[in-house]
């Protein structure tokens, strides 16, 4: 029953996505949150290499301190796209096989942790909104010390983002 419901919602959103995609495919001039190509193994993508992009809105991330803890807050409309490639060695001509994306939109019914979690196929343009807790469960670990990037050893609230945007380098 739950599955049918989920399916219905997915269809609904797929129908909507057809009209107005949430994720644009022209993001090549966007900023990168990390310039390197990531290729250490992570659950889900193993050691297939990955690139991360953030839109202009996302670069205006607000970083403030409250009671000794730093809180990141990405403005509504922030889009972060992580490209997933099919291989573990980087070639310039490669095309991503999948886009995993986060869109900041706390008012959206499907948002979890303030983000809508989307998987998009760059080939077909199909967008799938993840309504279950899967993505956010893992990304909650970004808000505490974790093994990636700067490892967040200060236990900052990173707004579910493993690689925060730090500004122009």
């Amino acid at each position: 029953m739950n599955k049918i419901w989920l399916f219905g919602v997915m269809l609904l959103f797929l129908g909507c996505a057809e009209k107005k995609p949430l994720i644009p495919l022209e993001y090549n001039d966007w900023k990168r949150t990390i310039n390197e190509v990531l290729k250490y193994p992570i659950p889900g993508h193993e050691n297939n290499y990955r690139k991360i992009f953030i839109n202009d809105t996302g670069t205006k991330v607000v970083r403030e301190e409250k009671e000794g803890r730093t809180y990141d807050n990405y403005p509504d409309g922030t889009i972060i796209i992580k490209e997933i490639y099919d291989s573990s060695d980087y070639k310039d001509t490669d095309k991503p096989v999948n886009l995993t994306c986060m869109v900041k939109d706390p008012k959206n019914v499907n948002s979890r942790g303030g983000w809508v979690w989307i998987v998009k196929s760059p080939e077909t343009g199909t967008e799938t909104i993840l309504t279950q807790a899967f993505c956010v469960t893992c990304h909650a670990n970004a808000n505490e010390p974790h093994p990636y990037g700067d490892k967040n050893l200060n236990n900052d609230f990173r707004d579910y983002v493993f690689f925060p945007y730090w500004g122009e380098e």
Partner: peptide, 17 residues
């Protein structure tokens, strides 16, 4: 599913989700 979280990877490796 019990997800292989970043904090689990230390013990369980990163080769599965």
């Amino acid at each position: 599913p019990l997800i292989n979280l970043p904090k689990c990877t230390g013990c369980h490796g990163s080769d599965h989700t």
